[in-house]
Amino acid sequence: MAYDYEKSIRPGKLPHIWCPGCGHGIVMKGLIRAMDTCGLDRKNTAIVSGIGCASRLPGYLDACTLHTAHGRAAAFATGVKMAKPEMTVICCGGDGDGTAIGGNHFIHACRRNIDMTYVLMNNFIYGMTGGQFSPCTPTGAKASTTPYGNPDPIFDISKLAIGAGATFVARTTAAHPREIDKLIVQGIQHKGMSIIEVLDDCPTTYGRRNKFRSVVDMMKHLKANAVPIKAAAKMTAEQLQGKFLTGVLFHDTEKPEYCAQYAEVIKKAQGA
């Protein structure tokens, strides 16, 4: 029997705004399956996003949804989680939103290790504004503001998250839909800051400019260059050139979670 996504989607809110071939829908389905697997009570689940194509995701889902300002998802979500730690908090958004304009909030949410799950859809481009380069656009790639090829080096989002102090960091791609929900489930179940980076595709503003002839080409590219972290251990640096590691890249269960730490502050303040 086909999976029932409808029960998780707000009546009348589809069709979504995403272009044909966009990977965001695959991620949304993965998120829905993950929320079901975790048995989340939607009344006590806040889904928080910033601005951009990926940030439109919460509006479609039946939950407490907060579509904030550009880059600010992690900071709004921090307020929600601090105020009501019993709520499950999920952030979602794109690479430009999360790591350029929102980079400061992103790294500090990681540093605090506040219990939330951030599903970051990295499609290497600012899609909604028409394809300007983001901190994740590969060097040399074409974007509407890099007509001669992108001179900028890229952010490795997962490494950034690990370096900043997130305690569960995983990466997969839109070409691996089964892995998306598995990793999000682990992220939700992990007590602390979880970053799930999903590499996906923007055929409209990235693919067309960068010699991907079709969405299938883009998916094949994601598949061909994804290397599970276990397999990578047996590969040379040369073999790993241009590849991206997938799976659970980092998992630390020792570092204290932020709201739990603040509960201790309250106890001390109250003289307990």
């Binding site: 009344k43 509006g59 039946d62 939950a63 407490c64 949804t65 907060l66």
Partner: peptide
């Protein structure tokens, strides 16, 4: 949020 109501907030 978290009081039984599910709704959407946007700018």
């Amino acid at each position: 949020f978290g009081s039984g109501y599910k709704f959407h907030v946007t700018g």
